[in-house]
Nucleic acid binder design. Structure first.
Length: 454
RNA sequence: GUGAUUGUAGCUCAGUUGGUUAGAGCGCCGGAUUGUGGUUCCGGAGGUCGCGGGUUCGAGCCCCGUCUUUCACCCCA
């Protein structure tokens, strides 16, 4: 076979040991806080039945699903007529019945329905796994990336939302990254659509006003007009989009504006309750009501969250919301859930840009033994075993090659302590211990050395 | 899916209007130093110029296609 140039698919990445150390720090930190808030781990398969995934993420989402070709002679079930039509979406259902998961929330809803009799509600689960999306990669967007999800399902109380805010605050404080937590409520957005008489256009409206920050009011209005909203409705929308003041003031004005919309008022009340709760404790980061926050996923029905890093431009690093009926489609009615998803890969990019990793790397090798030959090995191996038993990371070079090469190996791996045992040390039954940072070295008795590294 | 952009040594990049044998820095390997890394000095290996086609006496350079990189749009962690 001809030699082929090695490569990986577009939008995917390899991670080196140095990068994995950083990523494990991110996953470890997030996981630690998930557990502290009472979440329990689950995992689901990388692939789901396509029927589970299709139609959950809107029209765009369906296009961005990676589909898996059926095994075997997958074309045998497709008629010549269908093939000649060349209608890809139509044929997809005949040749593919599995797809890679697009997020962790929909598989979780499926999991909950499938295991409803074993689950103790309210069920707080966390899940840290990769997801796949077939869009074009660009800054902060990959085709394979990790999400770290925490969801509470089977409970309506707004305290769940409040705890998620605390969780977000705790995690980013731990990372030492400044963020803004933006909150909104789909019911408020529905109320707004209702009072301008465009309830059926809710998705177009939210998608357009989501861009207010980015493209400005004029362009948002232009887009709304293109989507078929009457000018009168757009005019009615203006004062709402331009609401100013702090969160409490905005909510007070909204209460007036949405007076005739039952659902809108409900949304305002929910936000008010959350704000009340948030007065009970201190947060390190700011929380604000952002009426332009819409979030694309259309299964959200209540509170929606989005978190942006203050010092790095990279889109949102965490997002989520409440979904009242995601399990309904799988046959379990009236189970509401709320959850958030941390974008580990974006957090990775943010921490890289800010160079915000802790200096202490606990996963690295701490003690390295230079290998001088069989007799020295026999002397060192029991000591090495004891060091490991003490919980200290340690290794020995696998063969007696040139010392220069072994020292360079230790230096490259940034191992802080090198133990040298050659003929002389062997005679005296001692260790020469070198501090790689200072360059100092001294002779130590075995017991003294073991004591010093504890 | 739309519009741009990128590709030359392991990495970062030079390479003249198309003209002999494609260069540098870093890294790698060896030596100076048969028991000492990170600094120094000397030497060496490493390239089908992303891939395929075309124009030309001649292509790393021009044209077409394709893949890849990065960015924006759509959408989104």
């Amino acid at each position: 076979m001809a030699v082929q140039k090695p490569s990986i698919p577009k939008g995917t990445r390899d991670f080196s040991p140095a990068e994995m150390l950083k990523r494990n720090y991110i996953f470890g930190t997030i996981k630690k806080h998930f557990i502290r808030f009472g979440y329990q781990p689950i995992e689901t398969p990388a692939m789901e039945n396509l029927s589970t995934l299709m139609g959950k993420y809107g029209e765009e989402g369906d296009k961005l699903l990676f589909k898996i070709l059926n095994s075997g002679d997958f074309l045998s079930k497709v008629s010549d007529a269908e093939l000649n039509e060349k209608n890809s979406p139509k044929i997809t259902t005949s040749i593919s019945e599995k797809g890679l998961r697009y997020d962790l929330t929909v598989p979780f809803a499926r999991f909950v329905v499938q295991h409803q009799n074993e689950i103790n509600f309210p069920f707080k689960r966390y899940q840290i796994q990769p997801v796949w999306r077939a869009d074009r990669p660009q800054k902060g967007r990959y085709r394979e990336f990790f999400q770290c999800d925490a969801d509470v399902i089977g409970n309506n109380a707004l305290l769940n939302e409040v705890e998620l805010v605390q969780l977000i605050d705790a995690i980013f404080s731990d990372f030492d990254v400044q963020i803004v937590m933006k909150l909104n409520n789909r019911k408020i957005l529905s109320g707004i659509a209702e009072i301008i008489g465009q309830a059926d256009k809710i998705i177009d409206i939210t998608v357009a006003i989501d861009k207010l920050d980015k493209i400005g009011l004029e362009n948002v209005n232009k887009e709304l007009l293109e989507k078929g909203l009457p000018q009168k409705a757009i005019d009615q929308l203006q004062p709402i989009l331009l609401l100013s003041g702090n969160t409490a003031e905005k909510l007070a004005s909204l209460k007036n504006v949405l007076a005739s919309s039952e659902i809108g008022l409900k949304g305002v009340d929910e936000m008010l309750e959350i704000i009340q709760y948030l007065r009970l404790f201190e947060l390190k980061n700011e929380v604000e009501l952002d009426l332009t926050l819409a979030r694309g996923l259309n299964y959200y029905t209540g509170t929606i969250f989005e978190v942006k890093a203050k010092d790095v431009q990279i889109g949102s690093v965490c997002g989520g919301g409440r979904y009242d009926d995601l399990t309904g489609i799988f046959g379990l009615k009236d189970v509401s859930g709320v959850g958030i998803s941390f974008g580990a890969d974006r957090i990775f990019d943010v921490l890289n840009e800010l160079n915000a990793y802790p200096k202490q790397q606990t996963e690295n090798t701490k003690v390295f033994f230079v290998n001088f030959g069989k007799a020295e090995e026999a002397f060192c191996l029991p000591i090495l075993a004891q060091i490991r038993k003490l919980g200290v990371n340690a290794e020995i070079y696998p063969e007696a090659t040139k010392m220069k090469k072994q020292m360079k190996y230790a230096d490259d791996k940034k191992i802080p302590i090198v133990v040298i045992v050659g003929e002389e040390e062997l005679k005296k039954s001692v260790l020469t211990v070198k501090n790689m940072e200072s360059g100092e070295q001294k002779e130590l008795a075995i017991a003294d050395f073991l004591h010093s590294i504890q």
